[in-house]
Design a protein around this nucleic acid. Structure first.
Lengths: 327, 327
DNA sequence: ACTCTATGCGAAATCGATTTCATGATCAAC
DNA sequence: GTTGATCATGAAATCGATTTCGCATAGAGT
């Protein structure tokens, strides 16, 4: 690749002038034309590594997420990507598998590659951000909090759990179970709390703990726990799934046993973009994942640009998409 | 962040020695200990940007794919990630939306960021790789060819299309349609060719073109085209979907119309990880996307390490997973 | 006409690591 | 005891951009 020096030589100017041309600093018209032409001839592209070293900042942002195979996070990623790309930033996607160790590795890389900032869906609320904060890199939390006072975008989880459950109640179900993710993940916990609130109000006699199951936020987790629930002496007649994958797993089990919704009522917090059910059979509380990504990316870009107002948290609401009444 | 100079000073050695310690070059035991200790105290992490500039190569590989929201590609990405991470490389995920322009941008970035190599699922077979080849960066093609003589990993597409179709024939279907992606994408075309071969052999009187539809490789494409097929004067009794998303879209339409498989036979080339059908209702030719990613990443790492044997192409076979006979 | 400011531009320093080269020390071999 | 080989080490060059600094020229103000 051609360097700035070769361009300078060909154009008969100094390297500094070439740099100016590429950074929009005032330069006389002739020299500007000469540099443009020389750059074109040599197919010059500025070396971003050198630029990053000198400027101490690169146009790359890291998106750190726990599960790249979950459509919720890819939708989020898509939103981040679109905004970042338009602003001239590229996005490094880092998959942590919910492992703190992998997460820490990626955060270190973000520092030592001088990345401009990080969007983080934390693997746990014990994630350590001291180093990256010391390095002065902005971090925006998505989906989950971090225990630090930083910008964040989260879903209205409790409300989502509540809306899903209430809808099942309205549809006439009386024994409504809840399947959610690991107790330590706040989204899992809060959605379950939403469910619990409705159950406590509507069915004060029920023992909520019997119908609440913590699992992993994955398809097989949903399968496993759904099977458990169906084995109960008095099985549920409906179920709230704490995220999309749990919902998929649970519905798979139901379908295999001929309990296809709405035979057993199902409400899912999250979307099922690849479901092959008739879309009307399941109640969803759609979460605006893409929008979350867009918002987080914009906030991060503002911070990168130097904005230092106090930390903000944006809460996005899910949208209830009711199942059509059974026909 | 601490630099190598500060570490050198604190340890009482030259910066060169510090560098040696961190690169496993022989250094006396005392100095080694001193440097280690100093680095620990200062929390020193080598600045990768500086290293990249000097070495003219970074430990980052680009994965360029047309659709980050397609689970097929995220599964692929997952395979790449796992291999890369183990080898100390990070992966930048670049979503091109099948646009040549975005793709070209990302390839330029790969060059100017000195990325170690690229894994590319090309947006089209007209993708231009001249620059990146001139830069000496290895490229491995996945899923689709590129028109260049480079390493590649592809699926046995024709065979997959054939296997899917043959299975429907064996199951007794007589009027089998085919929905596939854009004619210009080779995977789409080849899978359709597999279908066509079986139709020509089994039903020599049929007019294949009536039952073949090119669309986009997306859910809405599948919906649209499935609806078209059902409008035919003599609609099909079965259907082969050229990829996972087309399959999802088509099955959604079928479900809505009460034609749930196996009422109308469905075979999909690809997997349906988030389907909520009973897994037994649809025939799949599962494509080993993760394995493709793993293989491609390994090939790329070999090339990065300097391997210069002639270009190889690995062909991976899908695995037929028959629907259980209708019960 | 004389100062003063503005502006374009090149020389050189800078970012932080790696690597070449030269030096001096150590040790084995004859 | 001299020669030669080996090895650890530091000084300095290097990667390719950005940026500071100072000079020179042009134009404005009085």
């Amino acid at each position: 690749m051609a360097t700035i020096y070769e361009v300078a030589k060909l154009a008969g100017v100094s390297p500094a002038t070439v740099s100016r041309v590429f950074n929009g600093v005032a330069v006389s018209d002739e020299k500007l034309a000469a540099v443009r032409e020389a750059a074109r001839q040599l197919k010059f592209t500025p070396n971003r590594t050198a630029r990053t070293l000198r400027k101490q900042e690169s146009e790359v942002i890291a998106l750190v997420i726990p599960d790249i195979e979950n459509p919720y996070f890819t939708e989020l990623a898509r939103g981040v990507e679109d905004v970042a790309q338009k602003a001239g930033y590229s996005v490094v996607l880092c998959n942590t598998d919910s492992q703190l160790e992998k997460e820490a590795t990626y955060l270190q890389i973000a520092i030592s590659e001088h990345m401009a900032g990080v969007i983080l869906a934390a693997a746990s609320d014990t994630t350590n951000l001291d180093d990256i904060q010391a390095a002065g890199r902005p971090v925006v939390a998505v989906d989950r909090g971090t225990g630090y006072d930083i910008d964040g975008v989260v879903m209205a989880n409790r409300m989502a759990g509540q809306a899903a459950t209430e809808h099942l109640v309205r549809a006439g179900y009386r024994r409504i179970a809840c399947i959610t993710g690991p107790r330590l993940i706040e989204t899992a916990y809060e959605r379950a709390q939403g469910w619990r609130a409705v159950i406590a109000r509507q069915f004060p006699d029920a023992d909520p703990d019997e119908l609440l199951r913590y699992s992993t936020f994955r398809v097989d987790g949903g399968r496993e726990v759904m099977e458990e629930l169906l084995e109960l002496p008095e099985p549920p007649d409906a179920m709230v799934a704490g995220n999309n994958l749990l919902g998929v797993g649970a519905i798979q089990v139901l379908t295999e046993r001929g309990l296809t919704p709405p035979k057993l009522g199902v409400a899912v917090v999250g979307s099922l973009p690849f479901t092959t059910l008739s879309p009307s059979a399941v109640t969803l509380v759609r979460l605006p994942a893409r929008h979350m990504g867009v918002t987080a990316a914009k906030m991060l870009l503002e911070r990168i640009a130097g904005d230092d107002q106090p930390a903000r948290t944006v809460v996005l609401r899910g949208e209830l998409q009711p199942a059509r009444p059974a026909d």
